[in-house]
Amino acid sequence: MKVAFLFPGQGSQEPDMISNLPDHPVIRRTIDEASDVLDEDVNQLDNKDRLNSNRNVQVCLLVTGIATARALKAEGVKPDMVAGHSVGAFGSAVVAGVMEFRDAISIVKRRGEWMEEAYPTGYGMGVISGLTKRKVEEIIEKEKTEDGPVYLANVNSDDQFTVSGSLSGVDRALEVMRNKGARKAERLNVNVPSHCPLMGTVAEKLDQSLKPIPFRNPSIPYAGNRNARPLRDAEAIKEDLASSVAHPVRWHEVISLYYELGARLFIELMPGRVLTDLVCQSFPTARSLAVSASGLHSAKMLTEQIRQM
């Protein structure tokens, strides 16, 4: 049986996410490396006020994910496949050996800055559960306007989706979805309209910035956000990392793919447990674990058990 590492995206951030990382020498070295690349102390980026910045959120998510993955590797826990939700895809690319952590940090910093510059205020995202994809799409189509655009952003499970766009459009769509029987329809803690056509200019900037960066073919399967297929070519992964910011994340298909490929333990790197809950909902026969909740030792023990089955 195989083990998949999952890297969370925006919405999973929490205050003190770097400060709350386990006390491990590999984690300390990772934080120091990131601070050196950014020429600032990463430990100072994760307080509540500074996490109002999209740039700081994305940097902190990458650092916590890579630090956790490296600590697990140091303890003998290695993944058979990796996937990352949204900005988490950069973490999965690093662990798959596709790009260097230092390059990922620099690009993710700019990615966050470009997203904020494109839509500094009045835009964001919402999450819906309890409706079908078809119903969500029907409501979006009826509620979007030129002045209040709203789009389907992410397909997280067969009944959980995110929408993205102007706050007026998002709020209008969420209200209709609540009235149509959604179990949950509320704004996310994301202040930019990710994974929709509004991010087209950011995707173009990412494409240009990624071109000179050395990429390698992955050493283990890497699932693309945009097409939910295993990408084996370095250039295809580079294109996925650039373009996916302007396209929906097909996360449910990613997890379904890895389940079909034999993954029976899904380990969510820090912070949070959003992706763990989605695995539990979609594949109750699989095991899933959030390092934030269970710790490095539990992840190691459960991996050893899975390997023996």
Rank of each mutant, 00 (worst) to 15 (best):
A4D: 02
Q13L: 02
M17P: 12
L21D: 14
D23Q: 14
I27T: 07
E33N: 13
E33D: 11
L38P: 05
E40Q: 14
V42E: 02
Q44E: 01
D49F: 12
N54Y: 14
R70Y: 06
E75W: 11
E75A: 11
G76C: 13
P79E: 07
M81C: 00
V82G: 10
V95G: 00
G97F: 10
F101R: 06
D103C: 04
E113M: 07
E113K: 15
W114K: 03
E117L: 13
E117P: 02
Y119S: 14
T121F: 07
G122P: 05
G124W: 03
M125Y: 06
E141F: 08
K142E: 08
K144F: 05
V150T: 01
N154D: 10
N154E: 08
V163A: 07
G165C: 13
D171R: 04
E175C: 14
M177L: 11
R183F: 12
K184F: 07
A185Y: 06
V190R: 02
V190A: 11
V192M: 10
L198Q: 01
M199K: 01
G200L: 15
A203Y: 07
E204P: 05
E204T: 10
Q208K: 14
S209L: 08
P212L: 03
I213N: 06
I220R: 14
Y222C: 02
R226G: 04
D240W: 12
S243G: 13
S243R: 15
S244A: 06
V245F: 09
A246N: 03
V249L: 00
H252G: 00
Y259D: 02
G262L: 09
L269F: 11
M270W: 00
L275A: 05
D277W: 04
L278C: 08
R287S: 12
S288G: 02
G295R: 10
H297V: 13
K300Q: 09
E304W: 15
